[in-house]
Design a protein around this nucleic acid. Structure first.
Length: 357
DNA sequence: GCCATTTGACCTGC
DNA sequence: GCAGGTCAAATGGC
């Protein structure tokens, strides 16, 4: 189901792009037609899928719509997300929300699951899975838990096998294009390690918040591709971001702690608000699995930290605008522009003020 | 020069 | 002793 939502989001975004470039395309009926066809195709596909799954018990709203299982669905949308949704594809999403009466029942059930498993939230057939510990992440992720670098202590106060403060999110690979990159989650991460895990086909990548040093932000995450489903990533978040709380920290309003992880799933094929930088990848989806641009090995090697651990933030964190957006723009709009500035043409108002977030 | 990634080594918990 | 998590030097891109 999440794939379907991604499809719809994709369609919304395409529509938005089209709207923004309507003026440019006005005298390019051919490209205009192509854009329309693409949008139609995406929504038709989504509609087809919806009719297949329609309101069945396995239908779930996109995970980004979840916040707390016991709250009203719409209230679950983080204000920041709402704002973003409002600016990008809110109407479609709202429509979607209101057209999914099965959601609330499911959410109740999920709530039961959550309480049963101690804070975990499982989401059904879409393969989405969130579990969080009952303990606060801040507790679990003491900044001093950074090993060698921690002051004068020669011992690394590490905790093994400590699920407290740990949230596991299964993130399906994108439906389109490069399926090897997990979605962004609105934060910037710096890879600090990669490890082959016994019994796992794919290595696990370790990330920490880019602002860890500056703001002592304890947030970390691990990204690992699932053995049994290479098209899904398991992302383990530890620690809450504190960098956005600092006055001197990057000013872009971040998602509320915890919501980012859900955004990670939500952003499948969908650029986060801060991510003009991610748009390139998002657009890359539309190139199809065989798309040459940024697909598989090249983009992975370029950015993501190695193999399976393709970080949601991709390559140089916050610098991934190098994805072939320009090529796509050329293809779609025949704009002739090959610079990454074409992003501004497509999303003139969406450029984040602070891409370091 | 700065910052991110890579990767081997190191450290610690089990 | 092993496996997982982290460090930090080397390297590369911008």
């Amino acid at each position: 189901m999440d794939d379907t939502i991604s499809l719809i989001l994709h369609g919304c975004k395409l529509g938005e792009e089209l709207a923004l470039n309507l003026a440019n395309l006005a005298n390019q009926p051919e490209n205009l037609s192509k854009s329309c066809e693409e949008i139609i195709r995406v929504f038709a596909d989504a509609k087809e899928r919806l009719s297949f799954h329609q309101l069945s018990t396995t239908v779930y709203p996109h995970p980004m719509l979840f916040r707390e299982p016991h709250q009203d669905l719409q209230q679950n949308i983080d204000p920041i997300l709402q704002e973003w949704l409002g600016s990008s594809c809110s109407s479609a999403m709202e429509t979607l929300l209101h057209q999914m009466p099965g959601v609330m029942a499911e959410r109740s059930a999920l709530g039961l699951i959550e309480s049963k498993v101690g804070g975990g939230l499982q989401m059904g057939s879409g393969g989405l899975f969130i579990e969080s510990s009952s303990r606060s992440d801040a507790q679990a992720m003491d900044p001093s838990d950074s090993g060698r670098g921690s002051s004068s202590s020669s011992k690394r106060p590490r905790k093994r096998n400590d699920d407290a403060g740990k949230r596991t999110v299964r993130v399906p690979a994108q439906l389109f294009g490069n399926t090897e990159i997990p979605p962004e989650d609105g934060f910037t991460w710096r890879k600090y390690g990669q490890k082959e895990i016994l019994g796992s086909k794919f290595p696990r990548a370790y990330y920490r918040c880019t602002h860890q040093n500056l703001y002592h932000c304890p947030a970390k995450k691990q990204v690992q591709r699932l053995d049994d489903d290479p098209f899904q990533f398991e992302v383990v978040y530890r620690g809450e971001h504190t960098c956005h709380m600092s006055d001197t920290a990057p000013s872009f309003p971040r998602p509320a702690p915890g919501i980012a992880q859900e955004m990670a799933q939500a952003m499948i094929g969908q650029p986060p608000p801060s991510a003009a930088t991610s748009l390139g990848r998002w657009v890359d989806f539309s190139l199809g699995p065989g798309g040459s641009a940024g697909s598989s090995s090249s983009s992975m090697a370029a950015g993501s930290g190695g193999g399976a651990a393709g970080p949601s933030t991709g390559g140089r964190y916050g610098k991934e605008a190098d994805y072939p957006i320009a090529e796509l723009a050329d293809a779609m709009f025949n704009s002739g522009s090959s610079s990454t500035n074409s992003m501004e043409l497509i999303f003139p108002g969406d450029q984040p003020s602070d891409k370091n977030n």
